[in-house]
Design a protein around this nucleic acid. Structure first.
Length: 468
RNA sequence: GGCGACAUAGCCAAGUGGUAAGGCAGAGGACUGCAAAUCCUUUAUUCCCCGGUUCAAAUCCGGGUGUCGCCUCCA
């Protein structure tokens, strides 16, 4: 079985064939670190984290690079508002990025390059484009000349002239063509600047990604990923610059996720209708956000609402519950007297392969989760048997943990390890009352624990408790 | 004006030619001292509408309606 993925540039699913057999280089456009990121951004981080983990699971040696844009107009503006320097602003929100992303279970990239640490390479690339006649200097500002790159518009599927006739193109008389874009911006008073052959200034937005991606992954990336609003102009421009300079294809596969909407409208900073991960985490566990994101296919738009998040919470709780029970039983059960039924083992293998099949088909996490829910139901039914086999329990747990490692769920870390002393005492007291058939006292204690966020379950294997 | 996406039950959501996965919520039953958790049953003769192709369509083709997005910074 091979992995198929939807390529934005061809607008169809293609088989994954990396440049070098089992090596996959992924570059994902990262955040501009001028603010906390919102859950629309979170979707991108989560989705590409899963894709990365899945490729690794399927035996690929994955190198994942995600940049930080730490110099641009928004950075300068925000730093001025907060009356701090641009590097101070960047430090603050890079730290915030790592904090938020860790809560969401998103792994760190192998490389997290910063734009400001790659200025010399950017200057070098711009010089190369100038030598090739694809860029020109106007009084300290350097532009890429889009008509000089014949395939311009290929990624976004737009002919040059159609892009121009779009009413919103900014007309700038200094540019030779309306779609020419800045590679280097001349310094304005008070702005951070670096030296260059064209005078003091700073890089344009697109050039940083061309430089940082190819520096760490080579001239042709296997996968270039990002949010859908980056297709044009950002990725189109990156592609033009990179291919213009190297003459080689910039990326084999372009992956773009769908939007996260709120009230059916795109969530974005500029529309002001965004919610940060930090805000939402005050109300739900971050893993619920992750589950919510993965419950739909990554390319489809999803709508955010508190109610939908609640639905996700209930669904995830079901899965967490079965995994928790499996762990609990695996520790308590005696070793099997005889070998477990073969059919059960074969069935387990069936679930695993159906999950892989779903994920192989353009990372269909929604379909994959459906398989896991079916496994959960069968597992719960099996656990009702009077004497479940320890081996079956362990093997089943193994499957949950295997897919959990891909999707980022079921880490033992989340289990209730440290039992609060007071909770412990209350449970013991309730047990006492139950033995005396003093149901009103027992129920009162249960209610009290409930109000503390602790749910009790009386099971044949003893009392279990979990956080609500 | 150009390009594109989406429309499946009360809600969310898979499924791209073979007769509608899965989840949430609801109802009934089992289990329980009562619960919780769990299991069983149940909830779309039908996939926005109208035509067409086919033995067969949610799936393909044509037309329409609606919602959203990109073409400016945005994930």
């Amino acid at each position: 079985m091979t992995i198929r993925l939807f390529n934005t540039i061809s607008r169809k699913k293609e088989e994954l064939v990396p440049v070098q057999d089992k090596k996959v280089g992924i570059y994902a456009c990262g955040p501009t670190v001028y603010d906390y990121f919102h859950i629309g951004n979170a979707r991108i981080f989560i989705v590409f984290d899963v894709i990365r983990r899945y490729l690794r699971y399927r035996g690929y040696d994955v190198t994942f690079v995600q940049n930080f844009t730490d110099i641009d107009d928004k950075m300068i503006k925000r730093a001025a508002e907060l009356e701090i320097t641009v590097p101070q602003l960047a430090d603050r929100f890079i730290q915030a990025y790592f904090d938020d992303v860790e809560a969401l279970g998103v792994e760190k990239a192998d490389v997290h390059p910063k734009a400001t640490e790659h200025i010399p390479e950017m200057v070098e690339l711009i010089e190369k484009l100038m030598e090739k006649g694809m860029a020109y200097n106007v009084d300290g500002d350097v532009y890429f000349h889009t008509p000089a790159f014949p395939n311009y518009g290929e990624l976004s599927n737009q002919p040059l002239d159609e892009l121009v006739s779009g009413a919103r193109v900014d007309l700038d008389e200094r540019k030779k063509h309306p779609l020419d874009f800045a590679l280097w911006k001349k310094q304005k008073p008070g702005e951070p600047a670096w030296d260059s052959p064209w005078g003091k200034g700073r890089p344009g937005w697109h050039i940083e990604c061309s430089v940082m991606s190819t520096k760490y992954l080579g001239d042709t990336l296997d996968i270039h990923a990002g949010g859908p609003d980056l297709i044009f102009p950002h990725h189109e421009n990156e592609k033009a610059q990179s291919e213009g300079a190297t003459g080689k294809p910039f990326a084999r596969y372009w992956l773009h996720a769908g939007y996260l909407n709120i009230d059916q409208k795109k969530m974005s900073k500029s529309l002001g209708n965004f919610m940060t991960v930090r805000e939402i985490c005050k109300h739900v566990e971050p893993e619920v956000i992750r589950f919510f994101m993965l419950s739909a296919h990554y390319r489809n738009p999803i709508n955010y609402s508190a109610d939908l998040l609640q639905q996700a919470k209930s669904g995830l709780a079901r899965l967490n519950n079965v995994v928790y029970n499996l762990r609990d039983l695996a520790a308590k059960l005696p070793a099997d007297a005889e070998a477990p039924p073969k059919e059960l083992m074969a069935q387990l293998e069936g679930y695993r392969s159906r999950f892989v099949e779903a994920m192989d088909d353009d990372f269909n996490t929604a379909d994959g989760l459906a398989v896991i829910f079916e496994l959960a139901r069968e597992t719960n039914a099996y656990l009702k048997e009077p004497a479940p086999s320890r081996e079956v329990v362990e093997k089943t747990l193994g499957v949950f943990e295997e897919v959990g490692a891909i999707l980022g769920f079921f880490s033992a870390h989340g289990d209730n390890k440290e039992l609060d002393k007071r909770v412990n005492e209350l449970i013991a007291k309730r047990q006492q009352a139950r033995q005396e058939k003093d149901w009103s006292t027992a129920d009162a204690i249960r209610d009290e624990l409930n109000s503390l966020g602790i749910v009790l379950e009386d099971t044949p294997q003893g009392i279990r408790w979990r956080k609500k």
